[in-house]
Design a protein around this nucleic acid. Sequence first.
RNA 1: UGAGGCGUAGCGCAGUUUGGUAGCGCGCUUGGUUAGGGACCAAGAGGUCGUGGGUUCAAGUCCCGUCGCCUCAACCA
Length: 476
Amino acid sequence: MAKENQFVEQIADIETDFPQWYTDVVLKTKLVDYGPVKGTMVIRPYGYAIWENIQRELDGRFKKQGVQNAYFPLLIPMSFFTKEAEHVEGFAPEVAVVTHAGGEKLAEPLAIRPTSETIIGTMMAKWIQSYRDLPMKVNQWCNVMRWEKTTRPFLRTSEFLWQEGHTAHATAEEAEAETLTMLGVYKEFVENCLAIPVITGKKTEKERFAGAVATYTMEAMMHDGKSLQSGTSHYMGQNFAKAFDIQYLGNEGSLQHAYTTSWGVSTRLIGAVIMTHGDERGLVLPPVVAPTQCVIVPIAARKGGVIEACEALKAQLEEAGIRVTLDASDNSPGWKFNEWEMKGVPLRIELGPRDIEAGKMLLARRDTLEKSEAALENAAASVKEMLVEIQKNMLEKARAHRDNRIVYADDMAGILAAVEKGNFVKAGWCGCRACEDKVKEETAATSRVIVEGESKETCAVCGKPAKNVIIYARAY
RNA sequence: UGAGGCGUAGCGCAGUUUGGUAGCGCGCUUGGUUAGGGACCAAGAGGUCGUGGGUUCAAGUCCCGUCGCCUCAACCA
């Protein structure tokens, strides 16, 4: 009975306090344990497997863009940061610093990387001599550390895993194009693999990356209407090239500074998946990145032939490239149903004596919770088809949810009212910092992204002519 | 840093007002019966009550200190 009460309380939390629900889902599904340092987390194997699938999908896309993986040091001399004025100013408050090693005080403190522009810039300066060396495109998968004041598992942790791509080009046009190309790669990946619709576009000056000329973002809407910055792509112009002496000899013989970019996504994407698709039963994972795409639950497993039939089915599905788990533990079927639903496995197959006799299996979808029957013959084909359908449905569902929550506002009162209901608000913007600050102060919403291809007559804050349409939202 | 709250078994908590031999639920172990939506019976294991000091015949409980965590505010590519 206590269990039922806990469940009721859990449902109550969803309606009144979404972050609590989120924490419940993350912890109850055992994706993470907390680490000993505030704001760090130990990611359990199941959670990490999601990350591995994300890595695999992204790596394939990067390779197609001519990007190669490399690795750079964790510790970066503090002096590297001071070479780019805005960069050091932007990151100084959140950098963790190593001052002692080998039992002695270090002559120069070492920063634990919060991002690697400085060290990679230093290396690129050594590697690049001629226009023939360009473009240079490297990516590294690594951990970074930023000493955050408030943290939340996956969404904002002090230490997190990410990839950071860094490129250098001969011309501004080429570098800007690269920035947008990678933003496009991210968008395609997030929508098709994570089933999360995103709005891409430029950030305002206020929200720009420290040291960048332009920052592009993709913003996703979470279940509660808050925005999550899910990835960024920066055009650095020659700022970093000048700070780190990344120069090349052009084909006409003159020495010139390169134009650089950087772009990254992190384990925050796992948080985005949880908060976009999760429901009161726990995770709902998109098939493309689900560690287990399909779980087989035997019914009356001790009866003759059941386990054998399940194993045969498993072999057939594995043969077809499906990530499948057979839960042969001696928990009750009901327990298994709940357990695997909590873990977000997209498809469950129930197989018992009755089905085997009839040559059928029962399919239960995680996204809609619908059940259907299918023939055991050609099981792999029907399972594959179902996984594709689930992936597609999840994106459509998330897109519909988001589109219903994008509204327009023409004045501050309108912005406030819409933001409080958990909407993304499109509003005219004059382009000045003061108006952005005022919105933040009065509504706790920040400017998320400048909307392409839309226009408004006036700024919703000051009433002056509008330069752009901007999306305001509360954010994680 | 400002305000509030919490540290008792792996997890969630009661017990503190009024001091008197450490409790509950879940989980875990063993054996058995079960099995199409979190099964049942029986027997077990597991705690220097965050930590240091004080008062007392006696402290989870009272007093003083200290450490840690959470929420809100502030801060935050």
